[in-house]
Structure formats: structure tokens, C-alpha cells
Design a protein around this nucleic acid. Structure first.
Lengths: 220, 220
DNA sequence: TACGAGATATTGTTGAACAATATTGACATT
DNA sequence: AATGTCAATATTGTTCAACAATATCTCGTA
């Protein structure tokens, strides 16, 4: 899963490690990331750490306040709405123009199946991973390196939102069936229907996320 | 045009200055950017400069080779094809789902008119600027901060490509009419037609760019 | 409690240092 | 002349220590 770690500069490797901490929920939204503490923790210089912070800030995972330091980004309604707007544009667009024999369709099929298997096993983390991989494959249909990279960034931000919520079952499980429908439409040579289905999916997912965020913000 | 320069960190300001040099063509594709030379030139420390380089690398404007330094990215056929794939997805998508009363439509109208005025004046740089602003307004129809930011990055990369070519007239002038058509379709409440027109536009622009790049690479 | 003033800690930026790697150039070999 | 070798040189990668600027905290006083 994790790719080649060598050849990349220290800051890149650092950014990757911190990103992992972020999406694993080990670092909670709003938390301040002290330069001193983290350079100590990772045994790197403050300068190198600052380069890594800068990258993650550009990715939207950290927020930078002048003279106050960097903080883990806190998901808001606005950011969720924005993220789903992006997803509708990218994923529905990719589906609509998908070539019938594109290799990514096989990846979609595999990850959709994987989603069902893990769900039946009640392995919710597995369902989440399969789901993310499914949608990355959808974007890959567009055959654009820049789009893929952009989606990766959006995807990381979304995972940050997931971390805030603690209900992986309701967050991912309901979507297994829809993924299967979408890939089936595509396999049947009906990309437009697949896109329509995806739009339904994303609207539902967005509502679910917003509702979950609402609950998370105002705990009884 | 240029926004508030204070409040931002040194690296951000540096990145902006260097970006300006890049899109103005003062730095030519493939050129190596020495850390020593640039930290001298801008009178900043190497550390700060490296942070700026990192940001621009993430934007795709610079390329980083391990232990060899950073270089101005060189546009290739592949990158142009990729960029236009992104543009088709973003701009056509934004048009298709555009709300009829969106304020960005007025910006589109204004920049389209501005394009005609500057063209009649044979102010090709002006035509280029108006054109870029027009398409930024198109993306703005989608009402997504992340999409806008992403498009800005793509846009900067594209300007880098323009710099390589030296034929602003043929590169921008033919598109004045098409922009007017597109915004007219939108004003007439026919977003789908506008999107179709945009697709035609982008296909034509892509071909023009590829042809121009070909000529630039193999000078007689 | 509210308010300032000074003490403290943190970030912003710099400059120098050194290791690791890449480039150059002189020299020898064919 | 072309090519390969190896030391000399330059550049990047990373660290460290320092200091200015700004934010946060503490505490004494009204």
C-alpha cells in the first residue's frame, strides 16, 4: 500500500507520516501542532518539519495562523458541502465520459466486491477502504494525472471528516449496494445512467455526513 | 490585481514572486533554479527559499530532482493533453450545472466584452488576460472554493505553456467570438448548449496548443 | 473581578556548518 | 582523439543555534 519511501526528501516523508496520523484520527481537528514537539517526536530539525507543514497546509489538512502555529483543520458544514460539490463534478463527470473498456472499470468491480465481502464480515474499516478505492478508481476513468492528484487531496480531507465521526457502519455500509449498481451500469455500457446513480449516491452521502457532523458538534 | 501581501509568510510571498517570474516568461522551461543564486537575488535565507520552491513544486510549476535541484517545469504534449482534459471536466461541468442568475455570469459577460475590446485594439496580452479571467469565471459558476483553487493551479501551468509559445495573436484572438457565444447561451438559459460550445472551444484550443508546441520544439 | 506590565514561550527568519550527492576537470590508457 | 578513472569542487539535504517579532501566561494592583 505505502509506496517507495526512498528518493523522496525528508519533508515529503514527514508529510506522509503526519498525513497518516491525521487520517487515522490520532491527531484531532483543531489541535495545535507545536513545531518543537513534533521536531522532537520525529527527530528532525524544525526547518524540515516546517517544510512538511507547509505541504500539508497546501493540501487543506492543516491550517496555518500567523505567529500562532499550525492546527489540524476542523471540518465544517461549508467544507463538507464544498467537498461534495467537487466530488459530484469529478466523479459524475468521469463516469459520463468513461470509455467502456477502461481498465479502471475492473478496479471498480473488484473494490465493489471487496466492499460487499468486508461488509458481510462487519469489517467496517475494510468497507471504508474499499469504498475509498472504488471512488478513486472512478476518478481514474478520466485518465488525468492532475485530476487523480487533486482527488487524492480531497479524499484525504474527507477522511479527516470521517475521523471526526465515530459511526463507520452507517457511514459506509449503506453504500456497498450503490457502488455495485454504478459499476454494473458502466459494465452494461450505460455510463450516463452510472453518472446519474453516482449523483444520487453523493447527495445521500453528503446528507449523511452533514447529519453526522451536526450530531458530532452538539452532543446531547 | 495583486492581493494583500502582508500577513502571509515570507515563503508564500516568495512563491508568488517566483510564480510571477515563471508566467511572465522571465524564467524559461528547463532552467535550473540555484538555491544560492535565488536566495541572494531575493535576499532571503536558503531555508525560506526552499519552502517557496516546495510550494511551487506542489503546484506543478517547478520540478524537483533529488540532489540536483529544482527546474522550471517543461510543458510537454502529455501535460497539455492532461490540462485540457481537466479543463473539459471542470469548465463544461460548471457550465452544465450553472444556475441562471449566478453572479459569475456577469463576470463572464464583462470579460468576454473586454476580450473583444482588447482584440480590436490588437492588445494581445490584454486578450490573453481577459480570456483567462473569462474561464476562471466559468469555473466559479460551480461555487466551490477548492475547485477555484485547483483551477488557479491549472491555469498557472497553462500560462507557463503560453510563455513557451510566442504567438499570442493566434493563441487567443480566435476565441473571443466563442466566449461571447458561450455566455450568450448561458444568458439565454441554455447551460447545456453553453457546455457543448465550451467543449468545442477546448478541443480547438487544445489542438492549437499542441500544434504550437510542436512548432516550438522543432524550429526550422 | 478586571486590567496592565512584565516574564515566558512560540513562531519567523537567518546564517553557518557539515554530510551526501552530483558535476567538473585533469590525467592516464587505448 | 575518444574514453575511463579519480580526485577536486560545487550544490543540495539537513541540522543547529541564534535572535527578532509576536502571542500567551502570570501575577500584582486597582
Amino acid at each position: 500500500m505505502t509506496e517507495d519511501a526512498d528518493g523522496m526528501s525528508l519533508a515529503d516523508r514527514l508529510a506522509r507520516r503526519i498525513r497518516a496520523l491525521l487520517i487515522s484520527g490520532e491527531l484531532t481537528p483543531g489541535q495545535r501542532l507545536s513545531e518543537a514537539a513534533f521536531s522532537e517526536r520525529f527527530d528532525v530539525s524544525r526547518n524540515s518539519l516546517r517544510e512538511a507543514f507547509r505541504l500539508l497546509t497546501k493540501d487543506g489538512l492543516l491550517r496555518h495562523e500567523a505567529n500562532r502555529g499550525v492546527f489540524v483543520a476542523v471540518p465544517t458544514m461549508a467544507s463538507i458541502i464544498d467537498i461534495y460539490r467537487v466530488r459530484r463534478m469529478l466523479e459524475c463527470g468521469a463516469l459520463r465520459q468513461a470509455w467502456g473498456q477502461h481498465p479502471a472499470i475492473r478496479v471498480m468491480r473488484e473494490t465493489a466486491d471487496q466492499g460487499r465481502v468486508t461488509r458481510d464480515r462487519q469489517d467496517w474499516a475494510g468497507v471504508g477502504s474499499a469504498n475509498m478505492a472504488f471512488h478513486a478508481a472512478v476518478v481514474d476513468l478520466a485518465d488525468s494525472a492532475r485530476l487523480n492528484e487533486f482527488y487524492e487531496r480531497i479524499s484525504a480531507e474527507l477522511r479527516l471528516c470521517f475521523g471526526l465521526l465515530n459511526d463507520p457502519e452507517n457511514l459506509h455500509a449503506p453504500f456497498v449496494e450503490m457502488n455495485e449498481t454504478i459499476v454494473a451500469r458502466l459494465e452494461a455500457g450505460r455510463p450516463h445512467d452510472a453518472a446519474a446513480e453516482m449523483e444520487t449516491y453523493l447527495n445521500l452521502a453528503e446528507r449523511t455526513m452533514l447529519k453526522a457532523l451536526e450530531r458530532a458538534c452538539e452532543p446531547a
